[in-house]
Amino acid sequence: MSNTDIKQKINDILIEEFEVDEEVIKPGAPLKESLDLDSLDYVDLVVLIESNFGVKLGEADFSGMTTFQDFYNVIEKKIAAK
């Protein structure tokens, strides 16, 4: 799976499952502010990412994650390490 495919799949999950407006999903956009998800939504997002990509995400993966690009990078690294 290419990095472009990974980004598209993540974006699709955000749009379909969390009704995020496609216009706010930009690599440099602030992740938390753009998504406007509550803590339960974040748990759901982690579960969806783990099940769709076959990776495990921990608390440490989210430290320093501020933009969509940071989020993509974490998932890409997790997939590459499998």
Score class of each variant (00 low, 15 high):
Met1Gly: 14
Met1Tyr: 08
Met1Leu: 13
Ser2Val: 14
Ser2Gln: 14
Asn3Asp: 13
Thr4Cys: 12
Asp5Arg: 09
Ile6Glu: 10
Ile6Thr: 12
Lys7Met: 13
Gln8Trp: 06
Gln8Tyr: 10
Gln8Gly: 14
Lys9Gln: 10
Ile10Met: 03
Ile10Val: 11
Ile10Thr: 04
Asn11Trp: 05
Asp12Ser: 14
Asp12Asn: 13
Asp12Thr: 15
Leu14Trp: 01
Ile15Glu: 14
Ile15Val: 15
Ile15Cys: 13
Ile15Gln: 10
Glu16Ala: 14
Glu16Arg: 10
Glu16Gly: 13
Phe18Cys: 09
Phe18Met: 09
Phe18Val: 11
Glu19Asn: 13
Val20Thr: 14
Val20His: 04
Val20Asp: 05
Val20Ile: 12
Val20Ser: 11
Asp21Arg: 12
Asp21Met: 14
Asp21Ala: 15
Glu23Pro: 08
Glu23Leu: 09
Val24Gly: 04
Val24Leu: 05
Val24Met: 06
Ile25Met: 11
Ile25Thr: 12
Ile25Trp: 05
Ile25Asp: 12
Lys26Asp: 15
Lys26Thr: 14
Pro27Gly: 07
Ala29His: 02
Ala29Phe: 01
Pro30Gly: 05
Pro30Ser: 10
Leu31Pro: 01
Leu31Lys: 00
Leu31Arg: 00
Lys32Leu: 10
Lys32Ser: 10
Glu33Met: 06
Glu33Cys: 06
Asp36Gly: 07
Asp36Met: 05
Asp36His: 04
Leu37Tyr: 01
Leu37Thr: 03
Leu37Gln: 02
Asp38Ala: 09
Asp38Phe: 04
Asp38Lys: 09
Ser39Pro: 03
Ser39Thr: 09
Ser39Phe: 01
Ser39Ala: 08
Leu40Pro: 01
Leu40Thr: 06
Leu40Asn: 04
Tyr42Asn: 06
Val43Leu: 02
Val43Ser: 01
Val43Asn: 00
Val43Trp: 00
Asp44His: 01
Leu45Phe: 06
Leu45Ser: 05
Leu45Asn: 05
Leu45Val: 05
Val46Arg: 00
Val47Lys: 00
Val47Ile: 06
Val47Phe: 00
Val47Arg: 00
Leu48Cys: 05
Glu50Thr: 04
Glu50Tyr: 02
Glu50Asn: 08
Ser51Asp: 14
Ser51Glu: 15
Ser51Val: 13
Asn52His: 09
Asn52Cys: 06
Phe53Ser: 10
Gly54Met: 08
Gly54Glu: 10
Gly54Ser: 11
Leu57Glu: 01
Leu57Ile: 02
Leu57Tyr: 00
Gly58Trp: 02
Gly58Lys: 06
Gly58Asn: 12
Gly58Cys: 11
Ala60Phe: 06
Asp61Lys: 03
Phe62Leu: 04
Ser63Tyr: 04
Ser63Ala: 15
Gly64Lys: 09
Gly64Pro: 09
Gly64His: 07
Thr66Glu: 12
Phe68Ile: 03
Phe68Cys: 06
Gln69Glu: 09
Asp70Trp: 01
Asp70Ser: 07
Asp70Gly: 04
Phe71Val: 03
Phe71Ala: 02
Tyr72Ser: 02
Tyr72Ala: 02
Asn73Leu: 07
Asn73Ser: 13
Asn73Thr: 12
Val74Leu: 02
Ile75Phe: 02
Glu76Phe: 03
Glu76Thr: 11
Glu76Ser: 11
Glu76Pro: 05
Lys77Ala: 15
Lys78Val: 12
Lys78Thr: 11
Ile79Arg: 11
Ile79Cys: 13
Ala80Phe: 09
Ala81Phe: 13
Ala81Ser: 15
Ala81Asp: 15
